[in-house]
Simulated scan of single mutants.
Amino acid sequence: MLFLGMLWYALDTEHRKTAEANIRLALRVSQEEARRLTRQNFQHLVRVFSEFPRMTRMSRENFRQFVDPRGEEHLMRSLKRGRGVLILTAHLGNWEWMAYCAPFFLPARLHIVARPLRPRILNQWVTTVRQRSGNRVIPKQRALLHALKALKRNEMVGFLLDQNAGKKTGIWAPFFGMEVLTHKTLAHIALRTGAPVHPVFNHRLADGRYQIDIGPEIPTPQHGTLNDKAAAFTAAFNRILEDQIRQYPDQWYWVHRRFRRFRAQRSF
């Protein structure tokens, strides 16, 4: 993986420049440090991509050879309330393994909101693999309706909230000392349904497995208008995302143009 990661770093100028620029902007590090982190990041992402087909080997009997889940009791407690559960996560660690193994240690189906891939034949193959363990993939364009139906069945819906949003689908929220457009769907669904939101992330361990950390419910804002609450909720989501990325900066998806739109953070 080291060789392939370095080869990707050397040949893919566009993504290398994007990652280095993102790292410098977010982490406020030197150019030299940004290059070092980018090289590590490319090596990590090559490993994640190469690990995708291995998911088909995972089962209820052997999944702990691949992941180490912790904090399941938080989700169990929320599922007992019968309103379903919303998952806040990101493209950190090996997000594919984390989602795939969820049915092996949790009692409710997981629905994953995802943007369809291109070409269509690749999307069909990836979706088939992702759903083999019992999960369901929700196309991003129909996320709201499918998510509401899943929550009514007391199931779980996962949102990877770390990608760039448009002006119609996003809300300005603090992230790494600036404001970025962040998808607002998760906050609005949570406020509309009363479903609890839990942070669930993972990171690679020295032995090659990934530790899955499931956190307690994120407190729901109680004051202001619906838009005020959605803004406060989304800001809280971004704070959690930022904290995770700072802990494992080499394991996030820096090659995405997350800071394509940003503005100075407002002070109150």
Rank of each mutant, 00 (worst) to 15 (best):
K229N: 00
Q247N: 07
L226P: 09
F176L: 10
R204S: 09
D228V: 01
T185G: 12
F175H: 14
I212E: 00
Q244F: 02
R239G: 08
I240D: 12
D162A: 15
T234M: 13
G177Y: 06
F175L: 15
F176A: 09
H223D: 13
N202S: 15
V157G: 14
R239K: 08
F176V: 05
A232F: 01
F233T: 08
A190G: 11
Q251T: 04
P249A: 13
K168V: 06
G224I: 07
Q251R: 08
E217K: 11
K229T: 03
T220M: 15
Y248E: 00
F201R: 02
F201I: 01
I214R: 00
L148I: 09
Q244N: 15
Q251V: 05
P216W: 05
T193A: 09
M178E: 08
E242Q: 15
F233Q: 03
V197Y: 06
D213W: 10
T185E: 03
L205E: 14
H203K: 06
T193V: 07
D207W: 02
M178C: 08
F175N: 10
K184W: 00
D250Q: 11
W172D: 12
F233W: 04
R239T: 11
T193P: 12
N238E: 10
E179T: 08
A150E: 06
G194W: 00
T169D: 14
A231P: 02
K229S: 02
N238I: 12
A173Y: 02
A230I: 04
M178D: 03
W172F: 15
A147R: 05
A195R: 04
P221D: 02
T225Y: 10
L205N: 04
L186H: 12
E155C: 07
A230H: 10
K152W: 02
G208P: 10
I189P: 08
L148E: 01
E155S: 13
P219F: 03
T220L: 13
H223I: 01
D207C: 06
E242G: 04
D162I: 12
Q247P: 09
K184R: 15
P249V: 09
A231S: 13
L148C: 09
Y248W: 13
G158L: 10
G194M: 00
G208F: 05
G208V: 00
F159I: 04
G208H: 12
K149P: 03
Q244V: 05
H203Y: 04
V157Y: 10
H203P: 01
I171E: 08
E179R: 02
G194T: 01
R153I: 05
V157H: 03
F233D: 04
N154V: 12
L160D: 01
Q222V: 13
I189A: 00
